[in-house]
């Protein structure tokens, strides 16, 4: 298969995110929830335009790619995710970048994932 020349490839944005969750969430569960949220909010047509894809996900942080012109719709989809398999979650977008490397380096490396339980201990 021929790879498209760079100018003809679709332009993407990469969203670095953290998942603030009650417990551990697996990659497959998150993918299923993202597609269900996207299908529910945007429908098949809107989802195809947004082209949301879970690029990587490990230890409650990861990168989601989407179409360059639909970043705000993607963010809205991600904001409507409220629970995965009965565990409450918030998907918090840390930053948007034009490359995977940029998103990972700038927003994910060395970033601590927010853990509500630890935080409340500190306060006690």
């Amino acid at each position: 298969m021929k790879v498209l020349p760079p100018t003809l490839r679709e332009n993407k944005r990469y969203l670095a995110f953290e998942l603030i969750a009650e417990g551990q969430v697996s990659r497959d569960e998150l993918i299923r929830e993202i597609f269900s949220a996207s299908g529910s909010l945007l429908g098949d047509l809107g989802s195809s335009e947004c082209n949301i894809w879970l690029f990587e996900f490990e230890d409650l942080k990861g990168v989601i790619s989407c179409d360059r012109d639909h970043v705000w719709q993607t963010r809205a989809v991600l904001a409507t995710i409220s629970s995965i398999k009965g565990k409450k979650v918030i998907l918090h977008v840390l930053g948007v970048s034009g490359t995977v490397l940029g998103a990972t380096k700038k927003y994910l490396e060395g970033a601590d994932i927010f853990n509500p339980k630890e935080q409340s201990h500190i306060n006690e």
Binding site: I20, E22, L41, W72, Q73, R75, A76, L78, A79, T80, S82, S83, K88, V89, I90, H92, V93, P116
Partner: peptide
């Protein structure tokens, strides 16, 4: 109404853009 109902300002902006 709970911790998990909060959303970041930019996420609220994205929802409002809908």
């Amino acid at each position: 109404r709970s911790l998990y109902d909060l959303r970041a300002p930019r996420e609220l902006m994205a929802l409002a853009s809908l």
